[in-house]
Design a protein around this nucleic acid. Sequence first.
RNA 1: GAGGGUGUAGCUCAGUAGGUUAGAGCGACAGUUUGUGGCACUGUAGGUCGUGGGUUCGAGACCCAUCAUUCUCCCCA
Length: 461
Amino acid sequence: MAKATVSLPQGTRDFSAEVVRKRNYIFNTIRNVFELYGFAPLETPAMENLETLMGKYGEEGDKLIFKILNNGLDNPAKHEQIRTDFEKVLEGKNIKTITERALRYDLTIPFARYVAMNYGQLTLPFKRYQIQPVWRADRPQKGRYREFYQCDADVVGSTSLLNEVELANIYATVFEKLGVDVEIRINSRKILAALAEICGGSDKLTDITIAIDKLDKIGIEKVKEELAQRGLDETQVTTIEKYLAISGSNEEKLAAAKALIGETELGKAGLEEIEYVLNYITPDFRLSTFDSRLTIDFTLARGLNYYTGLIFEVKANGVQMGSIGGGGRYDDLTGLFGVPNVPGVGISFGVDRIYDVMEELKLFPETVHTGVKVLFFNLGDQESKTAFGLMQQLRANNIGCELFHEATKMDKQFKYADKKQIPFAIIIGSKELEEGTCVIKNLAASEQKTVLQSELIKEFS
RNA sequence: GAGGGUGUAGCUCAGUAGGUUAGAGCGACAGUUUGUGGCACUGUAGGUCGUGGGUUCGAGACCCAUCAUUCUCCCCA
């Protein structure tokens, strides 16, 4: 056999039947919860105008956007212009004559673009969910792909913290249903801004968040070094050290943070937001284990720079994996597209990582497999014609079945049923044909019985 | 963008200081068994050892390049 020379682009995958079924199980779970909470579906194109995406994800993000080469570059009339323009591409610029479209990088920005375009028609607050693939030109590694699905739920046109409460509950409900043990971390960008304010001014916000975001990876000493490198003096570093040292229960953390930044306006507001959400998680509202899963994490920063209020991040317990969900509040996302003052808040699920976690922890239920229920054996021309008629009757009664494609040894037909995990075999040979009966065999139990063909449907209803 | 690991049969991998004809398990196919599977036994097919150079009397093994893949950092879902 010639060795296949075809391959898949880096970081992409094919999904076999079993994997698709398991993935659909996750998709359906998430979709049902979104619907349950009053969110409506939206789909946007795989590609957007490049300028819609550029500059929205920070410098790093821009580099990871997959750009689409324009068609028609081979037109001889344009060659000279194209060559000149391509020189600029080599300098790292994006030139419309070379590339003007790109694959979507996330679902939030296309959503903001949609809201800006349709603002007049939307009933506010507008709650939408979106389940579609996104593409990033990242280097693949564990839990990281170049094509992966996001499941987003966002609310725009409302500043109410009730939205945050709802979204936190969606996280809890989905992972509860999937049986994944998670920790939902919560923080507020306002608190980080307050910290920056008392540590040298708001222009230091980015420096500070970048540094403290690394805490659990590089440790406190390295963080302090990095802060000093980024131009903070000793008092300021000490303040941040105190901030990072905050620990204990949610209540203890709140109290400690109040002492440190409660005086500032931003700090006060940020802490109130967190308290508000936590207070909603009263026994009446919370799910069985919810309160132990929603924890304050003052080191949580999140990279996407459009967040302005509460931020969320979800991590799976008991497994080495990056975050499997994240989100937060943004004050003015559509302002980028010419419609200012539309506040919003949203969350995202990373299905591919959730899949990896569930696979690693063996959390998929057996029932995810849903193939055909019956295999009709093919034991000859006349026999298979009778089988075919019965098969169509079963199908008409919504019972999935197939007829083996050729008359061959039973041994082979049994093996086919095994491989496809078909639970029942129906055998019609010359004897059954004569008697108007058929043999129903339960393959797992290795039991069989003979019934009249006219009674067959009853056996499966 | 930076740095590691790995490429040998359809799959998972062995292949010991370079040495004659490259192996195992699983899978596939056939048979033992022309209408009762999963087990067992027997047999068969399937490899230019990722690709291209080099060193050597001799390379799957060593060196260089290249491609693919995987992991870590950065960043993120």
